[in-house]
């Protein structure tokens, strides 16, 4: 089974994140990481590959030079190889630009050997759009199994369980398919020393838009369907109160809420 797992390099969510004058995420802090939720996707890929035997897991990222760290991490966890789509024309892409590039890269990999499964995280913790998995499934015309807490493949059929706010669902689809996993799906492994050493020898293929036959005008800032016109840090909250309970804090809280007409 050949599995492509989409991984994104994002600013560490523990860091001070900001938007630059162009409205884009500032990515020069050097404190970027593999999007945490994509670790769940890599873990799911490795588990499914091991269960299927005779498998290959390819990590795929679209992003600037630093994004190499994200694929490196996936390789350290155990992915067999990686593709990094690196092209200045991609900068400033919105989700649909990124989707078009990822789709082209998946087709490229498929041409080299049939891709059975495309795995993604449920959301990238920078933009948190959660739009990409469904868009990518539509673009590739694959069955879409998203927000998955449990996934198994048997006899070329993928079977999943997903937990939504209002319901729990079970879905099936024939391979090839696209699956996005939540953080409920598994606990991602930490790369061990052996994994870190092995990753050094693993191939990372760097591709540009020309390699993928993607017209640069359709992606990047030029192809983006949205444009940030204003961005500012939210002003700090004013009139903040911090008290230590002297036995009346509950009463004080009640009065605070009543005074502010919050109850």
């Amino acid at each position: 089974m050949k599995i492509v797992v989409c991984v994104k390099h994002v600013p560490d969510i523990q860091s001070d994140r900001s938007l630059g004058p162009d409205g884009r995420v500032v990515r020069d802090g050097g404190d970027g990481t593999l999007n945490e939720l994509d670790e769940n996707a890599v873990e799911a890929a490795l588990v499914l590959a091991a269960a299927a035997g005779e498998s290959e897991v390819v990590a795929l990222t679209v992003g600037p030079a630093e994004a190499a760290d994200a694929v490196r991490r996936a390789l350290q966890m155990g992915a067999d190889g990686a593709v990094h789509v690196l092209d200045d024309a991609v900068a400033g892409s919105d989700v649909f630009g990124t989707t078009a590039v990822l789709a082209a890269a998946v087709r490229h990999l498929d041409a080299q050997g049939h891709v059975d499964l495309v795995l993604t995280g449920m959301a990238a913790l920078d933009g948190l759009t959660s739009l990409l998995p469904a868009a990518l499934a539509a673009e590739l015309d694959l069955p879409q199994l998203t927000m998955v807490a449990e996934v198994a493949v048997e006899d070329a059929v993928v079977r999943v369980r997903r937990e939504l706010d209002s319901a729990s669902e079970e879905l099936t689809a024939p391979l090839p398919a696209l699956v996005s996993v939540t953080d409920q799906a598994n606990s991602p492994r930490y790369p061990n020393f052996k994994g870190i050493m092995a990753a050094r020898a693993k191939p990372v293929t760097v591709l540009g838009l020309a390699d993928l036959g993607v017209d640069p005008a359709t992606v990047g800032a030029a192809g983006s369907r949205t444009r940030i016109v204003e961005a500012a840090p939210r002003p700090p909250r004013e009139d903040r109160v911090l008290i230590t309970d002297d036995g009346t804090a509950g009463t004080q809280l009640a009065r605070y809420l009543v005074d502010r007409k919050l109850v």
Binding site: R240, V241, T244, D245, G250, A254, Y256
Partner: peptide
């Protein structure tokens, strides 16, 4: 937090509920 209370939730929450009912 706009309103922070350093305290034990098991005393603060019931007391707040009680006071809101009273008010």
């Amino acid at each position: 937090a706009d309103f922070g209370i350093v305290g034990d939730l098991f005393t603060v929450l019931p007391q707040a509920a009680e006071e809101i009912r009273r008010l």
